[in-house]
Design a binder for these strands. Structure first.
Lengths: 213, 213
DNA sequence: CCGCAATTCATGGAAATCCATGCATTGCGC
DNA sequence: GCGCAATGCATGGATTTCCATGAATTGCGG
């Protein structure tokens, strides 16, 4: 019974290791996809599912730790490193850069399965977070340039007349932009909009000034 | 010229190590305080400064990794582990639990100083964050029980009449509580209050409903 | 030229928030 | 009993936000 809600990528140049890991994962009803090199893995079409990347440190084309840094900016899954010749500085570096675990061969099936489970759970959380941020980011990008200027002023807490003064426009125009921002960002209240702005890390550049409760 | 804006704690049962580290730090104008055991360190009065804890893994009274877990809930400084007999699982565990580095003897002065620098910088950031949260937390604790009920409703974005209905009181009374909350939390605007509530991780339990813009 | 989006401004008016002030009740500590 | 804090409610009124509707200008693409 092969589960369809996740996938585990195995990148190791040693075919016996790949086979052994595939069999182990298969026996747990987990889907595995194997690659003999980092280049293969990077180039491959991958299913859009919560995942885990089991990565050998000594690869023929690149050091596993260097691949970790290389793919860090993309939405690659959490890494579980495996290695036959690891050293402590490598393990420290791997973990500090976000790897879930660093296992030296021979490692127990239990340790590997635990690490994989943690990696998939972490990827699920991260993917949900990214999906939500992507929606918010898309909405933000649909704002007009002016609306994008109004947003930080509004979520800073300025009165409409104060925000209007900042931009050198009438309060009435500011209100129009404000309403459009609320609508486009799907915010039911100012409180909603403030939280959305926080999620998008929009900087707060002002504070409501005295005389404006 | 001994600097007064930080301190480095050294916990190692080997007196020669303590001396060597103290001398090294001294030569960099950094203040060091040494302890021969974990118990001594934990019991000692410590200056309230940004700090770094250089911690030996093999201590006479407790394993350094266990001490890390033990002090995790208090405001202890970031840890740089040093060890003569480290293994990879220990280093993984140390870093995953927040240690800045895990250095095996013999380690270079440069590596140690770099780790110490990073630890102190991290402690500075964390201490600033904790200080701010402490102020906000204190303000929150000074709210009356009723005001503490009103706060999450207000920052959820409910209209005053909606929040009042939630508590079964008049809108006028809700407004009084609202104003008191704003004042006690030192919020100049609703936007401020929403951000404060986020910092305090006050859960959002409601959303403004249709019919209430 | 036309249509559209972006930006600007306005009016009239309703709803909501905010403020100052006043009053009342209850429970607690001195 | 008194004073205080917590909680509740009210009035009158000012300010702010929100809404619907209307109009104008500019720049761009078809």
């Amino acid at each position: 019974m092969m589960s369809d809600d996740h996938v585990i990528f195995i990148v190791d140049d040693d075919e016996r290791i790949r086979e052994a890991l595939s069999d182990l994962l298969d026996s747990h009803g987990m889907r595995a996809v194997s690659f003999a090199s980092a280049g293969e893995y990077v180039s491959a079409d991958k299913p859009d599912l919560p995942a885990c990347l089991i990565l050998d440190v000594e690869l023929p084309d690149i050091n596993g730790l260097d691949l970790q840094r290389q793919i860090a900016d993309g939405d690659h899954p959490p890494i579980v490193f495996i290695t036959g010749h690891g050293d402590i500085p490598s393990s420290v570096r791997a973990i500090k850069h976000g790897a879930v675990d660093f296992l030296t061969k021979p490692f127990s099936d239990a340790d590997l399965m635990a690490a994989i489970g943690a990696a998939i759970a972490e990827d699920r959380d991260k993917r949900a977070e990214r999906a939500e941020l992507s929606v918010l980011g898309q909405r933000y990008r649909e704002l007009t340039p002016r609306e994008r200027e109004v947003l930080p002023l509004v979520v800073s807490g300025l009165l409409n007349k104060q925000a209007a003064a900042e931009l050198g426009i009438s309060e009435v125009t500011l209100q129009i932009h404000r309403r459009n921002v609320m609508h486009k960002m799907a915010a039911a209240s100012l409180a909603d909009l403030v939280r959305i702005a926080e999620r998008l890390e929009i900087p707060i550049t002002h504070s409501r000034r005295v005389g404006g409760n």
